[in-house]
């Protein structure tokens, strides 16, 4: 079977089976956070831009949705669209300022902008609720669907999750993706071929921002609350961990990373109050033993099977 179809089938299967084997609220958090991780992989894995400020866009989506639904009095779909557009616009503004910097400087600037966004939210408590976050968010019905039903809301998120996977995977394979991957190797060479590398990188940064905004928006709807953590640098660090744990070579990697991150976080916190320590050990283990992330496990198994078939055939 075609490799792309197989991956898509696996992603759909995951979305369908997950709520049957683990609590639906955890499954829901996984697919929402997975959108965020895939968006981050477009910037980190595909474009090679080490952004440690992705929570800025996730948080922007979260707060914009929260505000639109409460003070704005808007219905659900426009609130989500505003979150996507707002996060993309913020990524466009931040990106325009920093995209010409590379490596370490780019990383520090994303971090600095993330901190600025965090303090704006913290200080502007009249609108954002400051440290207490933004509460009182309701899931208004969409076209007759009662999103307060957990299964219906899960299905709503699952459709957006699969759609995000398909779109982001297509972008990775598109001419834009090819330009980004090649520019990662040597940006000057791409300029010599007539490509505006900064233009392509800015486009990727904005697309990533848009999907991070969507994830932030769904996160808020899931918990009916916007925690200030959603825009903190820790969230930015966590999503980078997810991408690293899962693997950057395909969009399935970040999904696995998000699943393991969310699920293990829950599991470890039940086992021991100092769960973060166990989690740190797990990340070190993955980085040392599986350099390509968890997705590498599947590739290794496939290679061994192919070798076995070749042997028998």
């Amino acid at each position: 079977m075609n490799k792309n179809l197989l991956a898509l089938a696996a992603v759909v299967l995951l979305a369908v089976v997950a709520p049957m084997v683990i609590p639906i609220s955890i499954a829901n958090e996984i697919i929402v956070i997975a959108i965020f991780a895939m968006a981050t992989n477009l910037v980190i894995g595909v474009a090679g831009l080490y952004s440690f400020g992705q929570a800025m866009f996730f948080g922007a989506g979260a707060y914009l949705t929260g505000y639109s639904l409460t003070a704005g009095g808007l219905s659900l779909v426009p609130s989500i669209l505003i979150a996507i557009a707002g996060a993309a616009a913020l990524a466009g503004i931040v990106g325009a300022v920093i995209i010409r910097r590379s490596g370490f400087y780019f990383m520090m600037l994303t971090f600095a902008f993330n901190q600025m966004a965090f303090y704006v939210v913290l200080v502007w408590s009249g609108v954002t609720g400051g440290e207490d976050g933004m509460a009182g968010i309701k899931r208004a019905p969409v076209g007759g669907l009662d999103l307060n039903d957990r299964s219906v809301f899960y299905a709503f998120c699952a459709v957006l999750f699969v759609a995000s996977y398909v779109i982001l995977r297509q972008i990775k394979k598109s001419p834009l993706g090819l330009v980004l991957e090649a520019a990662k190797e040597n940006p000057r060479r791409m300029a010599s071929l007539g490509y505006s590398v900064h233009g392509a990188q800015l486009a990727a940064f904005m697309i990533s921002g848009a999907f991070a905004g969507l994830a932030g928006s769904l996160y808020v709807l899931l918990y009916r609350f916007v925690p200030i953590d959603s825009i903190s640098w820790i969230m930015s660090g966590n999503v980078v961990f997810m991408v690293v744990i899962g693997g950057m070579s395909s969009m399935v990697g970040p999904i696995m990373g998000a699943a393991v991150f969310v699920w293990l976080q829950g599991l470890f916190s039940l086992l021991w109050a100092q769960w973060a320590l166990l989690f740190g050990l797990f990340i070190i283990f993955v980085v040392f033993t599986l350099r390509g992330g968890l997705i590498e496990l599947f590739k290794r198994v496939a290679r061994i099977r192919r070798a076995g078939e070749a042997h028998h055939g």
């Binding site: 791409m190 300029a191 010599s192 071929l193 007539g194 505006s196 590398v197």
Partner: peptide, 12 residues
């Protein structure tokens, strides 16, 4: 910038 020179028709 280099990419504009390339688009103008110069290739290195």
């Amino acid at each position: 910038p280099t990419h504009k020179i390339a688009r103008a028709g110069v290739t290195l």
